[in-house]
Amino acid sequence: MIVADRKPLDEILEMVGDANRILVSACNTCVTVCLAGGRREAAVLASQIRIHAQEAGRTVEVRENCLERHCDAEFLAELAGELEWADVMVSTACGVGVNLASEVYPSARIIPGLNTSFFGATDAPGRWLEMCGGCGDCVLHRTGGICPIVRCAKSILNGPCGGSQDGKCEVDPDTTCAWQEIIDRLALQGRSAELEAVEPVKDWGTSHSGGRRRRIVDEVFQAEGEGEA
């Protein structure tokens, strides 16, 4: 899932500025699971905005809603009426949601309530860890299911670097060295010999260095699609 963090209140208030009618729109998917932008977090943010306005002696109206998903235009249709009313919408969806809502409602002022961070999974209650870099050229079959692209601070394909000590990364002692994990995992699977081979340079052309990426399933796209190129 996509993992995000709530932006600091001061930053959100600055973006909201002197708007009087504010819509806070939550997303019931990934950001609900990671406790960053679901119904409950949006309600807290709406209250904070109201309290701040009250303290500043201003009258504002804040409404809240929660869509099933912000990353699907079908669900965003619900926003039409609310956006007619609102001066500004604070989205507590991930960046995908903010992009898509802004595309569907180009004249609306939609601001991000979250900082979208990574693709990850719940590791323990209250903790999420990055798992995948979305590089478009998966190598996990060679690394025991451990992504060296994002789990190694230097994205090393022939690791570990000299800074790995006691299984920890040199960059942050709270971070496990991904290459120590890869070595241990392949040893567990009896595949240590595979690590003797020099891994060739990676093709980053499938990653985010070539501008916006797209995926097309021809038969569906030709039959129904029309979107932008």
């Binding site: 022939n158 020099v198 340079v201």
Partner: peptide, 27 residues
């Protein structure tokens, strides 16, 4: 490989790490 930029005086720099040190040797 190089020391990670977090240790230096431009901690907010974007990391490159396009190839790794073993691959640079081969290059």
């Amino acid at each position: 490989s190089g020391d990670h930029m977090r240790f230096g005086n431009h901690g907010s720099a974007k990391a490159v790490y396009d190839i790794d040190s073993v691959q640079l040797v081969n290059t």
